[in-house]
Amino acid sequence: MKDYIEERVLEVARYIIESEATIRKTAKVFGVSKSTIHKDMTERLPKINPQIAQEAKRVLDLNKSERHIRGGRATKLKYKSI
């Protein structure tokens, strides 16, 4: 794996852990696709640093379990403004 990819993976992981950001928000901040962020967190990070991978996975799992709530709020706000 190239050095710049490893650096990006670790930087993305730190960002997710510190800000508890979603994959979509993280992708927007780093200017890459959601697929890239997902691959970085699920495949590359565990090989580079398993401990950080566990922390990032905890945050991403929490976000995944809450996404239906955020979607409901967004829909409610959308129709409230109409």
Score class of each variant (00 low, 15 high):
17 I>P: 01
26 T>H: 01
15 Y>V: 02
54 Q>S: 06
69 I>G: 01
17 I>F: 10
64 K>P: 00
63 N>V: 05
53 A>I: 09
81 S>K: 11
63 N>K: 09
39 K>Y: 06
5 I>P: 00
25 K>E: 14
70 R>H: 12
1 M>S: 15
52 I>V: 12
58 R>E: 07
22 T>E: 10
69 I>F: 14
15 Y>F: 15
54 Q>F: 05
20 E>G: 05
32 V>R: 09
36 T>D: 02
8 R>A: 14
13 A>F: 04
33 S>Y: 06
34 K>Q: 13
60 L>P: 01
18 E>P: 00
67 R>D: 14
73 R>D: 07
60 L>H: 02
82 I>M: 14
78 K>I: 06
53 A>L: 09
39 K>I: 03
52 I>L: 15
27 A>N: 07
81 S>W: 01
9 V>N: 04
61 D>Y: 03
8 R>K: 14
9 V>Y: 07
16 I>N: 03
77 L>F: 13
11 E>Q: 14
63 N>Q: 11
25 K>N: 07
35 S>T: 14
7 E>C: 05
5 I>S: 08
68 H>S: 15
47 K>F: 05
76 K>L: 15
66 E>H: 06
17 I>W: 02
69 I>D: 05
41 M>K: 03
44 R>V: 13
32 V>D: 03
60 L>V: 01
25 K>I: 08
